[in-house]
């Protein structure tokens, strides 16, 4: 294979990994604190739409990202309110959020941005070529000729690792995810930790959505997330709830997605629908193989009413 083919494959693998990684990091924050967010798919969809809407009405991609982060941050807090304060079942709320996300983005996508060929196109997030680094053969161009969100996602991985393992707040997040009661008896404000993690998760969902709509297609299309929210959830599990592992898993799944696109363009005589299945199949196999061996935070999806509230 020529260098060109390999470089273009790597570049597209990374481009497709970025939304997964951003969404997965959002899930990771929630998951380490013990909140199971299967509604990520819906959150990312809302983020993707708000990004384009923001970019269209405010006139710049940056404003679009900012708008999306605000919107999905609010969605994250709403999710938090439902599962934390009212104690609703996290699986039910997550499922509802997915359905809600699909419905509301379809409605507002059509009414605000039009549909089909007439759908609004906006200026996407431009690529930013980093001098010197991008000249490294093979990986240089793939890694360092991407848009700002991609670079942000690279930096978020060590940042998340630092927060989780080197700060007091990160220790509290991990502790709450394992045993909220124990954390509470030590004076950790469990609900506050959960709300902050939901907020972070929501905001990252917005960025993830923008990396799809503004970073890759420059427009919004219905159900454009296409299961990536769920794949991100798998990436967290596959990555054993660590930032680095999550990144590895995101790259694997993103790479599979890119490979599937390559296969289609090679003109192999297999119906393209089967090609489309490849990343999802890989996700299933990876999960079936690994999830038994990794340990999720012990208090995942457990409702908890804080001691102080019980008294009041």
């Amino acid at each position: 294979m020529s260098e060109e083919v390999i470089v273009s494959y790597l570049a597209s693998a990374i481009r497709l990994s970025v939304p997964l990684l951003l969404a997965a990091l959002g899930i990771l924050f929630m998951s380490r604190s013990g909140i199971l967010n299967i509604g990520m798919e819906g959150m990312v969809l809302i983020g993707a739409l708000s990004g384009v809407v923001g970019a269209y009405y405010f006139g710049s991609a940056a404003a679009g990202v900012g708008f999306a982060v605000v919107v999905t941050g609010l969605v994250g807090l709403l999710f938090g309110f439902l599962v934390i304060t009212t104690g609703a079942d996290q699986v039910v709320i997550g499922t509802a959020l997915n359905l809600f996300g699909l419905g509301i983005t379809t409605v507002f996508g059509r009414s605000l941005l039009g549909m089909g060929q007439e759908a609004v196109r906006v200026n996407g997030i431009p690529s930013l070529r980093i001098p010197l680094l991008s000249d490294i053969p093979y990986v240089g161009e793939a890694l360092f000729d991407q848009n700002v969100l991609a670079y942000a996602s690279y930096l978020l991985v060590p940042a998340a690792a630092f927060v989780f393992y080197k700060t007091n707040w990160g220790l509290r997040v991990r502790a709450v995810g394992e045993n909220p009661l124990a954390a509470d008896t030590l004076g950790v404000r469990v609900h506050r930790i959960w709300y902050i993690c939901c907020l972070i998760g929501g905001m990252l969902a917005g960025v993830a959505g923008c990396s799809l709509s503004l970073g890759i297609l420059n427009q919004f299309t219905e159900n454009m997330v296409a299961g990536r929210g769920f794949i991100a959830l798998s990436a967290v599990i596959f990555g054993k709830w660590t930032p680095l592992g999550t990144m590895g898993a995101s790259l694997l799944f993103g790479g599979a997605d890119a490979l599937q696109l390559r296969f289609q363009s090679f003109g192999i005589k297999i119906p393209y629908q089967f090609m489309l299945m490849f990343p999802y199949l890989l996700t299933m196999v990876a999960l079936a193989w690994f999830s038994g061996k990794s340990k999720q935070p012990a208090a995942t999806a457990a409702a908890y009413k804080s001691l102080a509230d019980r008294n009041g």
Binding site: T167, L186, V188
Partner: peptide, 12 residues
């Protein structure tokens, strides 16, 4: 150390 602040620093 959980729930305590060492010397008011955010780092563990």
């Amino acid at each position: 150390l959980l729930g305590l602040k060492q010397d008011r620093s955010p780092f563990f």
